[in-house]
Design a protein around this nucleic acid. Structure first.
Lengths: 201, 201, 201, 201
DNA sequence: CATGAATGAGAGTTCATTCAT
DNA sequence: TATGAATGAACTCTCATTCAT
């Protein structure tokens, strides 16, 4: 029955508008200082409706983090396959891609940093992020090693390089709060690249 | 009168034990999910006593950030004077110093990151931190410029170098949560240095 | 839909039962010594429900005063029109009417006196009452003046007469706390009347 | 020893300055919303000192009412003896005296009205005031009766006359908040007198 | 399914009172 | 005696969650 179909569509839309509102509110005000009522208002529904789609506030918070995380994951996996060219070119492309991501999705990244900053408070989410980090590190190491064999990357522990790269990504989101200016983000690319190898130009 | 002296001593001790407890609790649980009662318990006083020393929870939070910030400030100012040797040596020393600081004072740094992550929520504190960042950048730029003239640092915008350095410092605190292992922190020094210039060894 | 109607009915009933309880509690214990919990208990609801209908304790207090004041207003306006006969008969009737009101609604009148006794504490409410007084005085003056022309009322400033009449009304509520005995209230009518003119019998 | 003497003097002064401050604060803010700290500040002492002179807040409140009441009592007793002339003259003088008292001591009278308005809250004080009222009524009745025999006062229950007189006194304090203008208070004298008998001029 | 009234646990804050100095 | 730091009872208000409509 097409009626069912369209109703299901409607419901999905409503659910995702709530989730979007949740990302916004949680990222601005944190878990505790975000009220379900504020999320509902932002999403244009009554607060009772939020509970129709998400059992508890905690569940909403987890969904607001885990679902966007799934969207982001592809950009951090299969590094060797999805980017093309020499190791240096692959990493350059990857950084460009990540920087774009980070400059666009500042709200979601604030959420990530809330979790990273409160491991005891959100253990399950933190674990999920740790796995994400490990997967990325595992995925990028082969590229780094190849670059090292080619002599273009520092002879440094590949995992350390990968982790310092994640550090600067995260740190940039804290340091450059005025997200908009893409020019700055672009010029950060080369700084990130310098964690991998000496890049003069 | 020595009585006055010792009473004032006692009071200062109590105040600082409350402040220390506040740093711990706020850093673990954030502003909203930290209760005054928990701080009081941690400090070994009744919750009423907390209000003897700090007018409101907000004031306690601000003190927990601003007072340690004052202690930290010297390490981020007068870079050119307080570190010795060539520009490369100065920066190396500076990084070593900052990394030690960051690895030791993880609680306080979490607080900083809470503020950086919620500029709208804590505008006054955020402004304070922005000033701190600007002062540091202003203080380190001459050293970078000298290193650039010597040809050991990248010909990159000095302020961009300085800010990317702060980014990696901040980001490291998020990425390496298990603070203890100093060995990791040490090996991060070289990665930070590589934001300034090509460092092979 | 009758369902809507009845729900709205139910809510109005609950709201007014809370308001009634508030009048009782506030009049007995004053603003500060009345707890929302006590009002809720008296009204047979949980204290959270009180906040569903009144935003703050202060708002509840204001409603407890202003809403009954609206009910009372008609008895103090259009004096010339609503009471019949000669000026003396009009005033006599009016006093009778007011005395009945005052002897019946002692709780509400205590609230009024709390506000009159704390103008700095409740400035908005006080202003409202001042307006009420002025309106009454303005409304009764023509009747007094007519009585003066007829020679049955004292040749005294009409507004002074009106205000002294309000004074005795208010004062009676303080002096005769054991409200019940209507006989006393009745015999007070003549005393009030004597503020207007010489009444022998 | 004169030292003792003067210390005792000093103490009495301090006690009375606290009491004076208490009358002011309690009359403005009521019992519950007056803090000991505010009284202490007004009196220029530390709040600990207040407890040196008055055991509890309640005791301070009672003293703030009962001690001025003692000062006032003489003006409400022995009416027949302390005022001179015919009954009409006596009553006229008495009213003048009371009106002066009421217009001068508005703070204290607000306290009285707080107690009259909350008999359940301050039963002991209320009882004290009831006795005061009874004593006054008993003291003034003979004068009224004499005036009635002379034919200048209404043939009305003397106690009712006395009580309605107290009512108007009390009510005036509520109605005329802007205490200062003595002219108004003076013109109120005649209105009060009209509760006793017909007074044309 | 959507709504929002009802509930009450929980938190910040105030302040009388105690008591060591 | 004077002081003010320490304490904790008590109160207002918020808000997640439930559930009847």
């Amino acid at each position: 029955m097409p009626g069912n179909q369209s109703m299901s569509e409607k419901k999905k839309l409503k659910r995702s508008s709530i989730l979007k509102a949740a990302v916004k509110q949680f990222s601005e005000n944190g878990f505790a200082e975000t009220t379900i009522a504020a999320v509902a208002k932002e999403a244009g529904v009554s607060f009772g409706t939020v509970f129709t789609y998400f059992e508890t506030k905690q569940a909403l918070y987890e969904a607001a983090i885990l679902e966007p995380l799934e969207e982001i994951k592809p950009y951090f996996s299969e590094v060797n396959d999805q980017f093309k060219g020499s190791p240096l070119e692959k990493i350059k492309e990857m950084i460009q891609c990540h920087i774009n991501l980070f400059s666009d999705r500042s709200e979601f990244l604030r959420l990530i940093q809330q979790v990273l900053g409160s491991p005891e408070r959100f253990p399950a989410l933190f674990e999920e992020l740790a796995t994400f980090v490990n997967d990325f590190v595992g995925s990028v190491i082969p590229v780094i090693e190849e670059g090292q064999r080619e002599g273009v990357f520092y002879k440094e522990s590949p995992s350390l390089i990968a982790e310092s790269y994640l550090s600067i990504l995260n740190g940039m989101r804290l340091t450059f709060t005025d997200e908009s200016t893409h020019s700055i983000w672009n010029s950060l690319t080369i700084q990130a690249l310098r964690l991998f190898g000496p890049v003069t130009k």
